[in-house]
Design a protein around this nucleic acid. Structure first.
Length: 508
RNA sequence: GCCAGGGUAGCUCAGCUGGUUAGAGCGCCGCACUCAUAACGCGGAGGUCGGCGGUUCAAGUCCGCCCCCUGGUACCA
């Protein structure tokens, strides 16, 4: 079985991690964990894009070497990964030798084959945006403020023959409808490709920018942003090493919608095509978090840093929130109110309280051991059927990366377990010595425990720590296979349960 | 201007190929319960499904026009 090779965009080493970075890593992580649970070997890579003018200037402003600054930012991002329980197998940095040699190798090959040529370029250059501007970038005849100071410069540069691949790319997109998800993004890219495509300037003269990978065929230049950054996906896969074919082509690139067109949907496929490398199977473009909530709280003097929520409430509630709230591909509004509502209602009241009441009843009525289930009557049949449909639908959604809808199904099942308790009323049965009541009580607790075990198995990719601690209380190892752990088989009968616990305290 | 997506309960959204009283979660009100993190369960209020017109025995669901929001792109400048 081919290893499922999954990447996120690499973050730019100019600035600190925020909600957008965090969300993308969690999304990719949940996908990676799901694939593992389905039995697929997974290689999950994320990393840091460290070259470029802003990084160089930032370091100069601080009076330190760029690499020192990058080391510090890398530590910041990696500590975010740890905070969020991201299970990446690798962390690639574009300043690493393994990456630089691949960039140089690909550039040299393309140059040798005439895919890269030298030309004089005259244009308007924005230092702030680190790019040449077109006349069309002007607004009302002036350069917009976001570009900062704009100067006209003439210089020789190297260009990659992007334009000649346009028709090829259009037909590739037309023949592979699932290449970009959500589907409407693919249409946008096709729309983008209706316009003429310019060749891509891939160099910057060293006297203007020296913090970059030197062009192998002209060391007066360094490699410009995308030809450096995008290549991380193949260098992290070990391009040139024996194991490369086991990983490449990538199965999924997870990126933000802002870097879909043109970088990931145009430059990258063409770079690969020109290098005779196969294309990734799929690109998933997620949306953005909007934060008028943050503005509001700033005006009230209470600033909410989304990442501090993970520190305060724990990584899993944060992961649950972003996965539940964001419909993949759309934008979502972030607000503290919504976060707290999800935390209190879904996690505390529905799931946490279920764990709590169930462990408590089992301890007091059944000496903390999962009882044998002796009945299979209406209530049991109903919850059993609900599980079957939940399993089927939730898995389908998870496989389509629709985690919001999948989680909705899982929590609907969890509410079903609470309803089931009300139908059997074990607290009443426990007051009776009658054999039929004893049997109903044991059936009820055993059924609830089995149902909780199954719901918890589906939560594993989204809330790995909560999953582990619930399983621990149930006397189980963490779930490692959805093929084996999702069948209703009462495997816990007779097992010792753990102490009652409050998973999601109301006061944090 | 053009392309795509969207406008459904106070909020966030489900509603496939048109078919009885339009659904869920949260919030709100009430009831019940007492195993539980004042939690769980039940019930209720609340929507002329953006607007107008059309097709049909029947439209949130199809067609036309219009308005508004989001993203992309062009032109004017």
């Amino acid at each position: 079985m081919k290893t499922f090779y999954l990447t996120t965009a690499i973050d730019y080493a100019n600035g600190s991690p925020h909600l957008g970075h965090a969300y993308e890593k969690v999304l990719a992580d949940v996908i990676a964990r799901s694939k593992r649970l389905l039995g697929s070997p997974v290689r999950f890579v994320t990393g840091l894009d460290e070259h470029g003018q802003k990084v160089q200037q930032g370091a100069e402003a601080e009076g330190i070497d760029p690499i020192q600054r990058c080391d510090r930012v890398a530590e910041e991002f990696e500590s975010m990964l740890r905070l969020l329980d991201i299970s990446n197998d690798d962390y690639i940095r574009t300043t690493q030798e393994r990456h630089k040699k691949v960039v140089a190798h690909l550039l040299q090959e393309l140059h040798d084959r005439g895919e890269i040529y030298e030309a004089e370029y005259q244009g308007y250059y924005s230092t702030r945006a680190e790019q040449f501007l077109q006349e069309k970038d002007k607004v009302n005849g002036e350069w917009p403020e976001i570009f900062g100071e704009v100067t006209q410069i003439t210089e020789r540069n190297y260009f990659f023959r992007l334009s000649k691949y346009r028709d090829w790319l259009v037909s590739h997109l037309e023949e592979n409808p699932g290449f970009i998800e959500p589907a409407h993004r693919q249409n946008q890219v096709l729309e983008f490709l209706k316009e003429p495509l310019n060749d891509l300037c891939i160099s910057r003269p060293k006297d203007r920018l020296n913090w970059g990978i030197p062009l192998p065929f002209d060391t007066d230049y360094v490699t410009y942003v995308w030809f450096d950054a995008l290549v991380n996906y193949v260098s992290a896969a070990g391009f040139g090493d024996p194991g490369f074919e086991q990983l490449w082509p990538a199965d999924l690139h997870v990126i933000g919608k802002d870097i879909l067109a043109p970088p990931h949907a145009v430059y990258w496929p063409i770079m690969l095509k020109a290098s005779n490398l196969p294309l990734p199977a799929r690109i998933l473009a997620h949306g953005w978090w909007t934060s008028s909530g943050a503005k509001m709280s700033k005006s009230t003097g209470e600033t909410v840093d989304p990442l501090s929520l993970a520190e305060r409430y724990g990584s899993d509630p944060f992961r649950y929130f972003v996965m539940r709230e964001m419909k993949v591909g759309n934008d979502a509004e972030f607000s503290l109110e919504r976060f707290e509502s999800r935390y209190r209602a879904d996690l505390g009241n529905d799931l946490g309280n279920l764990v709590s009441r169930l462990l408590h009843m089992s301890a007091t009525y059944e000496e903390g051991v999962t009882p044998e289930v002796g009945l299979n009557e209406g209530p049991e049949k109903k919850i059993g059927l609900l599980w079957e449909s939940t399993k089927e639908e939730a898995l389908k959604f998870f496989l389509e990366y629709q985690f919001s809808q999948g989680l909705e199904r899982v929590f609907s099942f969890i509410r079903g377990i609470n309803k089931y308790a009300d139908e059997r009323t074990p607290w009443k049965l426990a007051k009776s010595e009658a054999p039929e009541d004893r049997q109903a009580l044991r059936t009820c607790l055993g059924t609830m425990i089995e149902a909780l075990r199954l719901a918890n198995a589906l939560l594993a990719p989204v809330m790995p720590s909560v999953h582990a601690s619930i399983n621990d209380r149930l006397g189980l190892e963490p779930c490692c296979s959805w093929k084996e752990d999702l069948s209703w088989d009462h495997r816990l009968s007779g097992k010792k349960l753990g102490e009652k616990t409050i998973l999601f305290p109301r006061d944090v």
